[in-house]
């Protein structure tokens, strides 16, 4: 029963090595899926390419379904998995900033690193912006700390808030994903194709 490092099967020092291996695999898949091209990523917002939407939604659903069945089979103890705390104010502000950066720059932080890895200049500039942002955030943190921690809701989960079971939530999300895949495919069909 997992998580492996929490139950003492693996020393927690292994976590960094596992993270490195997973990170390399993640980067490889991103690049192989064409995510190091900013036009492909921006396509979600202009309606000519929804691969990003499909890939990330599918990844999330696969992980969800996998974890639920692992938990059911007693292979993993979900209560030991760390759930990030929710701070509503900073989550909304961060989402807006991230979205704007996504539209303007054509990358999200991870894919910009992929783009840099294959030598793209726009990726390099984007990554420079990321580091300027990190620096500014760190330097001005005392000023925005109050806002940063506003709307603290603790480690809440969507299905607890909705009052439905986790399984039901996953099922609804699967249906939503499939419908959205169909609709976005129709939108993409109508859009003018973009070559890149």
């Amino acid at each position: 029963m997992g998580p492996l490092t929490d139950i003492g099967v693996l020393n927690s020092n292994w976590e960094l090595l596992i993270a490195l291996v997973l990170g390399i695999g993640f980067g490889y898949v991103l690049e192989a899926a064409g995510f190091s091209t900013s036009r492909k990523l921006a396509g979600v917002f202009y309606g000519y390419d929804f691969v990003v939407w499909r890939v990330f939604f599918t990844a999330a659903l696969t992980a969800m379904v996998g974890l639920m069945y692992f938990s059911y089979l007693d292979w993993i103890d979900l209560s030991l998995i760390y759930v990030n705390k929710t701070f509503l104010g900073s989550a909304i502000a961060g989402g807006v900033i991230m979205g704007l950066g996504f539209i303007i720059g054509g990358f999200c932080p991870g894919t910009s690193v992929c783009a840099v890895a294959i030598g793209k200049l726009d990726g390099l500039i984007f990554l420079g912006g990321v580091f300027i942002g990190i620096f500014l955030f760190g330097a001005t943190f005392p000023l925005i700390e109050e806002f940063y921690t506003s709307g603290a809701l603790g480690s809440i989960l969507v299905y607890d808030v909705l009052g439905i079971s986790a399984g039901m939530f996953v099922f609804i999300l699967i249906l939503f994903a499939i419908v959205s895949f169909y609709l976005t495919a129709r939108i993409q069909r109508k859009a003018k194709p973009v070559r890149y």
Partner: peptide
């Protein structure tokens, strides 16, 4: 693929309470 996911999702809804398994 969609059918596979729906079956997996239905499975999660119909299998009995998780907590008891722990």
């Amino acid at each position: 693929m969609a059918a596979l996911m729906i079956i997996a999702g239905v499975g999660l809804v119909v299998i009995p309470d998780f907590d008891k398994m722990k």
